[in-house]
């Protein structure tokens, strides 16, 4: 069994900043475990700019922002392992964490850590969670999945697009798809105001004449094999569709940008308490979960608006975890 002082689960923006911070705070024996084959997490597919204004005082794209951290991690020799999936976190009698992980070269591995920092990020809310009636054809994507196809693979998820939800990923994808040659018909938002940043409303929708329909939702998906259209309806103040306001919009694709859910399978399996409001673990002022020595930061804790805030929080988590290890 491998022994480390601090193990960080996830090599996205939170994990990278936490690892660096732990190292800078005097704990050399740290290890970042990343599931993917490269560091950087979701930033790698966020090729638009707007990142780093707080952290680096300049405007960067997602991959550039990630690269700044990856470079620091390499320069400062923070150890990491790629293509390694964490399967389980257990706590032994001494309070040490026994983390089970797996990868192609080593098979199953056990790592004993004095402290663990959770930095697994979040995932998107799917259609099912929104209970949109209708058919179940191809052509329904979460905005992030569409972003992966477009930015990482150069593929189009469709050509005539309706976006439900005006979260930032939805707004960014409205512009991206338009730039890549798709027709973006509208963005529908069930609430009376957009959940996205003001600058994204202006730069991604207004500048491209993409309409934003507030108090509006999709009440039916049409199409047997591929999406052939959606029904949009106005909603009342309780977000219930108003009868008689339905209208059909012909499209081949529905993108969903309806919120993110912290990814806490491991947190739950470890036995840490979850806050039903945020979907993330309950933490104290030191970002420590209900299990001593288990810390959390970034979108696994709660969904952040800006990656800069994720980095700042993760830096704190790294420092708190270092203090915890020194104090034991």
């Amino acid at each position: 069994m491998k022994n480390v002082d601090i193990l960080i689960i996830g090599g996205g923006p939170a994990g990278l900043a936490a690892g660096l911070s732990a190292k800078r705070n005097g704990i050399g024996n740290v290890l970042i475990l990343e599931r993917d084959k490269c560091l950087g997490g979701i930033l790698n597919q966020c090729i638009h700019n707007g990142f780093g204004l707080h952290t680096f005082k300049e405007e960067l794209t997602g991959p550039e922002y990630a690269d700044r951290y990856v470079t620091m991690v390499r320069d400062e020799k923070v150890p990491f392992m790629l293509s390694t999936m964490v399967c389980d976190i257990a706590v032994d009698d001494d309070g040490d964490k026994i983390v089970t992980a797996m990868n192609k070269d080593e098979g199953m591995l056990k790592i004993k850590a004095k402290a663990v920092i959770l930095a697994m990020g979040c995932r998107e809310r799917p259609r099912g969670a929104l209970s949109i009636p209708g058919t179940r054809p191809a052509g329904i994507f979460s905005a992030g999945t569409a972003q992966y196809y477009v930015n990482m693979e150069g593929r189009m998820p469709g050509k005539k697009i309706v976006i439900l939800g005006s979260g930032d990923i939805g707004l960014i994808m409205a512009r991206r798809l338009k730039l890549e040659g798709a027709e973006v018909l509208c963005v529908a938002e069930i609430r009376p105001q957009s959940g996205g940043l003001k600058r994204n409303i202006v730069q991604c929708l207004e500048d491209f004449d993409i309409p934003l329909y507030l108090n509006t939702t999709v009440t039916k998906v049409h199409g047997k094999d591929r999406v052939s259209g959606v029904t949009l309806s106005k909603v009342d103040e309780n977000m219930n569709p108003i009868e008689g306001t339905e209208r059909f919009v012909e499209c081949d694709t529905l993108l969903l940008s309806c919120g993110l859910i912290p990814e806490n399978e491991l947190t739950t399996a470890a036995g840490a308490q979850i806050d039903p409001k945020t979907g993330g673990p309950v933490v104290d002022g030191m970002l420590q979960c209900s299990i001593p020595g288990l810390f959390a930061c970034g979108n696994v804790l709660h969904v952040h608006e800006l990656v800069d805030h994720v980095s700042a929080e993760a830096e704190k988590a790294g420092a708190f975890a270092a203090d915890y290890v020194k104090g034991r």
Binding site: P137, A138, Y149, V150, G154, R155, M156, P157, G158, K159, L179, E180, G181, K224, D225, R226, D252, T253
Partner: peptide, 17 residues
């Protein structure tokens, strides 16, 4: 996704920019 008319992807980026 299922039948032959249910392709997931619809061509490449910048095909008709």
């Amino acid at each position: 996704k299922a039948g032959k008319d249910s392709k997931i992807l619809e061509g490449y980026t910048k095909e008709d920019s």
